[in-house]
Design a protein around this nucleic acid. Structure first.
Lengths: 358, 358
DNA sequence: CTGTTAGCGCTTTCAG
DNA sequence: CTGAAAGCGCTAACAG
């Protein structure tokens, strides 16, 4: 492949003139410009990415760091990536997905600087080595979700308002008269599940009630989403027939819930109302009945994070900014008024009837 | 950030010794090695990715080139990317997703070499500028799907055996007694739709029948998958009540078909059997009834393509290899024997007569 | 086993 | 507006 000197020679100019034609950093007379471009064209020349990066110290590549244990795109990630890609595309950045495992990169021969200007970190944990290491090296990054507590004010992040989301869902169900609401939460160690629980509890408190501690279930690591929904719903609905509503962490989980409800001879929303945090935005309309959701817009999350990261990259001073994204309720047909006849508690049901009268 | 000279100085050795400690290309005595590593550790040094790449002419990054118009991950892409990532992870490569638009990179200031060793090209078209350009520049690549005809023997590719897949689906339905089978095909300009049609026709021929040309519909570019399924199924089932089976290009399309069938007061599989090429592997079990599919394993496709690409990168001679992946039928509950009562038969149900009258 | 030297292809002063 | 020269941080011969 031809290099800059070849082009300079062919066009009868100096290297730096060629450089400036391609970088646009200095004005070059139109005549010379054309001559250079023609020579380049003919030699099929294009500037070497690395040579340029080496001196400018800029790559125009941003990295996405996923949990290296999992190395998996989930349904949830798709719309997120679409948002990231969209913004990258707009601003002329490339996207590097880096999933090399830890042990791999600890090998001496694999240690290198990262070929990126900045990074988006996914799935932060309470104690997160990846983040610690990057902070220590002064790398620029944006976190998706809440960063570890000790960095909460020091790092930029983009997060859904998970407390608000859970509160909205819960309040909506409370408004429909439900009092025994099962929260099928995320995995316990993720910060999001704490937030969800907080929102849930808060919604009860706001109307002067106390949430039932036993109605918050955390997801185990092992089962699939659909399975988790199915097994858990079946178990809890059997154990506690007072439950008239279920909040599912994802729409896939809700799918399992639907199946459990139907197998128990019950119906949605007649007997059990179902609402989910909607992580993929593809299918809720295809549920039968269509699934009411708290819309978590992954694409916006991805796009905002990318914008923020690039903003940090281009700002001269250190820039720290947190963006919290509110989510909204999308009503479809899976929630209805709480049923008022309960198998085991005539008193309770009359209370509820009274309440409805208000 | 410290550089190699700093480390060399600190450790009291030469630059090349440091280089060899990190590259592992030459044996270094353990004593010196430790000294170097300690110095590096203390200076928080790691080799500069670009400087290294510049001289080795190797990046250990592979690129995925998606249709820049679309800049969207679809359901279909997920499992594919999981396969790619898995293999990248195994072999120590990074993945660059490049979706910059054409006009963007035509700007002089945006022209650069690509920072990748090789690329995987998605969604090849019959005439594909991206491929032509890369061939002209001698870049190494692996195509997913069939490359343009003129390159078919010259380029490496990984493809599903789409002819076989369509034939399998069609033969299965023929075996159930169906004779009027609607093929809801992919977009016409994609090579895959030709293959599907060929397999479809072939299955009829193998049992001495001739496929009805009018039963092959191509998808338009504009509508969503679900919509395409819905609108097309509704239209054709109305127009031609002889149709007892539908082959859908994707399971999302099948979702639309289900809805159309149900709105027409018909049932799956009682009146209409449905089978789909399964592009996402997530939902077929959740259909009601569960959707019979030709399983296209995107993850295997991605993994094989990555393996092949890296193999080409590492081979000294030019390596061209084609990998064809067979797919298999997964029977669920959406196909049944063809119904035997047709509107045009002497014995007709009143509803059907009515419809014909319109 | 270690050190010296010459690039890789570009950008960036600094003079003209 | 253009050119010459000095690096960026590393690897790869080639000597020792």
């Amino acid at each position: 492949m031809a290099n800059m000197s070849d082009v300079a020679k062919a066009a009868g100019v100096s290297k730096s003139t060629v450089s400036n034609v391609f970088s646009g950093k200095r004005a070059i007379s139109e005549a010379v410009r054309m001559r250079v471009l023609a020579a380049a064209e003919q030699l099929n020349y294009r500037p070497n990415y690395f040579a340029r990066s080496m001196v400018t110290k800029e790559t125009r590549i941003i990295g996405v760091v996923m949990d290296s244990e999992k190395v998996k795109f989930s349904q949830y990630n798709i719309s997120f990536f679409n948002g990231v890609l969209k913004e990258c595309n707009r601003q002329g950045y490339r996207l590097l997905i880096d999933t090399l495992h830890k042990e791999y990169r600890k090998q001496v021969t694999q240690m290198t600087s990262e070929p990126v200007d900045g990074e988006i970190i996914l799935d932060p944990a309470r104690v997160d080595e990846r983040i610690q290491e990057r902070v220590a090296n002064g790398r620029v990054m944006t976190i998706i979700g809440k960063p570890p507590l000790k960095y909460e004010t020091a790092l930029s992040y983009v997060n859904n308002d998970n407390v608000q989301a859970a509160e909205t869902a819960t309040a909506y169900l409370l408004g429909l008269g439900h009092r025994h609401i099962l929260l099928m939460n995320a995995v316990k160690k993720r910060t999001v599940s704490q937030d969800r629980k907080a929102g849930y509890v808060q919604a009860f408190e706001k109307i002067g009630l106390t949430a039932n501690e036993n109605c918050n279930v955390y997801r185990g690591e092992t089962v699939s989403s659909v399975e988790y929904g199915y097994i858990t719903a079946k178990k809890y609905l059997r154990k506690n027939p007072m439950i008239t509503a279920i909040i599912a962490d994802t729409d896939q989980i809700a799918l399992g819930v639907y199946r459990a409800v139907s197998e128990l001879g019950l119906s949605v929303p007649g007997d059990v109302s179902v609402i989910a945090f909607n992580n993929n935005t593809v299918y809720p309309d295809e549920f039968n009945p269509p699934l009411t959701c708290i819309e978590l817009n992954g694409e916006i999350l991805g796009q905002e994070a990318t914008k923020l990261l690039i903003e940090q990259l281009q700002s001269k001073e250190k820039l720290v900014k947190q963006i919290i994204i509110q989510s909204k309720l999308v009503e479809r047909a899976s929630c209805g008024p709480a049923r008022t006849i309960f198998p085991s508690d005539p008193v309770q049901s009359s209370t509820l009837v009274q309440r409805e009268d208000k």
